[in-house]
């Protein structure tokens, strides 16, 4: 079991509260949909250990998580936001960042970056600065950066928004290909896309994870 969560609660100062009675996730692709502002991204940020709420039980990979050791858990899970956010560096350096912070060798970094760049068809962009590429290209760079270090779990927030049809199909195929070794949570408004990708689809409304579609 990747995630085993019981009675997770997280509140913002604004008053919005996320409440998840139960969330179980096996090695698979799980989809989450629901109206804007229903708490989907907040839930992803909790799953990424970036926000810390209260819970009755929160197990990751079968072990109860330790709130004093969230930084090591964050090394195994990554969150890719809906809107691309890149460093003011080259595309290569952006994709290499998670490998560099994990102290991979220069040769390993080069190999992995070029390999993932080919998968996302961005190999021609590697020497470009982040501000020299289009929004759709930046989105693919962010996705490549999320997958390059082969984390246990990847949390994708609207992975194909801002992308043309071909790029969207490319990303979907990539998600399906890597799902055998990486668990993936996909948040999307596109229910047809979730049906194509996910074995399990959940619905969120007003901060609550309601039911399976």
């Amino acid at each position: 079991m990747v995630y085993q969560i019981s009675k997770l609660q997280f509140s913002y100062d604004s008053g919005f509260t996320l409440f998840v009675d139960e969330f179980l996730m096996q090695n698979s692709i799980v989809g989450i949909t629901g109206p804007s502002g229903s708490g989907k991204t907040t839930f992803l940020l909790n799953l990424a250990f970036l926000y810390t709420g209260k819970w009755e039980s929160f197990k990751f990979m079968g072990k109860e998580i330790d709130v004093d050791d969230l930084s090591s858990l964050r090394k195994r899970v990554t969150y890719v936001p809906q809107h691309p956010i890149l460093f003011r560096r080259t595309v290569f350096e952006n994709i290499a960042y998670p490998l560099k912070v994990r102290r991979f060798s220069h040769e390993q970094i080069r190999k992995k970056v070029y390999s993932i760049a080919e998968n996302f068809r961005i190999q021609d962009l590697l020497n470009k600065k982040a501000w020299q590429i289009s929004g759709g290209q930046a989105k693919r760079v962010c996705l490549a950066r999320g997958f390059v270090f082969e984390p246990d779990v990847v949390l994708l927030d609207e992975p194909t928004s801002d992308l043309d049809e071909d790029s969207g199909k490319l990303i979907e195929q990539f998600i399906l290909d890597v799902s055998s070794r990486t668990s993936i949570v996909v948040v999307s408004h596109d229910k047809q896309q979730l049906c194509r990708l996910c074995s399990n689809i959940l619905y969120m409304e007003k901060g609550r994870l309601l039911h399976t579609l």
């Binding site: 964050r74 936001p81 460093f87 999320g146």
Partner: peptide
């Protein structure tokens, strides 16, 4: 941008690496 700090965290940067990231940006 606070979002960039979140990205550094989720990509596995330690506190020191996040500070270096902010410095470089």
């Amino acid at each position: 941008d606070e979002k960039l700090r979140v990205i550094m965290k989720t990509l596995g940067a330690t506190g020191f690496q996040q500070m270096m990231g902010v410095f470089r940006e």
